[in-house]
Nucleic acid binder design. Structure first.
Lengths: 174, 174
DNA sequence: CTACTCAGGTTCCCTTAGGGAACTTGAGTC
DNA sequence: GACTCAAGTTCCCTAAGGGAACCTGAGTAG
């Protein structure tokens, strides 16, 4: 199958997708961040095959998203913890969860609630502008080429059409 | 291979991942939302195989994320547009992009900038609490069982460990 | 001291999704 | 009549995922 490698592409979504774009990584990170950190716990909680879990964990460690730690000697017991890079995937999980809640929750409502400890409210996440705090949507934003858009000889350029269009477009509004 | 089906699982991340958890869906949605909407344009921009693109587009249409529209008769030409459900995936893309920018942008900086039309600033997205506007992180939130957590006989329960832990945990803070 | 369990994997075989190139179809156009 | 273009579809091949069995080191019940 040899999945097309996306890590070397000049697009941060592609780079993130190269790691995150599979059936299990999001769920593994959800579990690890929620405290399900042991190999067998993950196998049972997710229903993932042991082989695939071992491969994913190994990849996530290589990427610096997880670390393998011993939490007990004699008998030796290991578990997995999120690094800072791993914990910063949390907004991605929130965005996925929020979308799933909105479009797939049945009559009963969403399966889980997010509780914000600092303000002590059950809440929903909003993807907001760091400047003005307003919600960012496909309609009120546009993408422009950034400083890292000029790439060296080893880097494949993904999205020349986007790059050229972004400048031409009056804006993403219809 | 027969990927484990996740759509019927009582977890919104799993439901979203069933559709979104592959190498291409995020990039297809990025392109469609940015105005790259024609079949051949997508093939050339993404480097995706025509076969796989056709399958993904078909799935995205079945899910109500995209619609296929004619934009010219004689010769008949079709393109793909995001529905509301599709446009609401934008925060997921922003979260992925933001994470990729933070952890994979080289010296040169990120490959693209987000421009917020309403406040006319280049910006970064923040995943914020809808109540108080503060940033939500793995540290300052906890997940609690929601109303849709009770599931019928046809629904597989994913994450009983989480469900039981969420109640016990004093909070996600270390 | 032998048998059993448990955690954390690894090995094996099998199926199937993805890569990639070639082919198809319907319409325009040189 | 030959060529191009858009939008797929068909073909073959490889490798990734599923799943069950196996392995290994350490504790522990009888």
């Amino acid at each position: 199958m040899t999945r097309t490698p996306l890590a070397d592409v000049a697009c941060s979504i592609a780079r993130a997708t190269d790691l995150f774009g599979d059936a299990w990584t999001a769920l593994i990170m959800r579990d690890v961040l929620a405290g399900v950190t042991r190999f067998d716990e993950l196998v049972h909680d997710l229903g993932i095959s042991r082989k695939v879990l071992a491969a994913k964990l190994s990849r996530l460690i290589d990427e610096g998203v997880l670390v393998r730690e011993s939490y007990r000697e004699r008998p030796a017991r290991e578990h997995y913890r999120a690094t800072e890079k791993g914990r910063e995937l949390y907004p991605v999980l929130l965005a996925l969860m929020s979308w799933g809640d909105r479009w797939y929750a049945g009559e009963a409502g969403p399966p889980a609630r997010i509780h914000h400890l600092d303000c002590a409210h059950d809440t929903t996440p909003v993807t907001a502008c760091a400047h003005c705090g307003e919600a960012l949507t496909a309609d009120n934003t546009t993408q422009l080429p950034g400083p890292g858009g000029r790439v060296g000889p080893g880097t494949r350029v993904l999205g020349p059409l986007i790059a050229s269009r972004a400048v031409q477009l009056p804006g993403a509004r219809d």
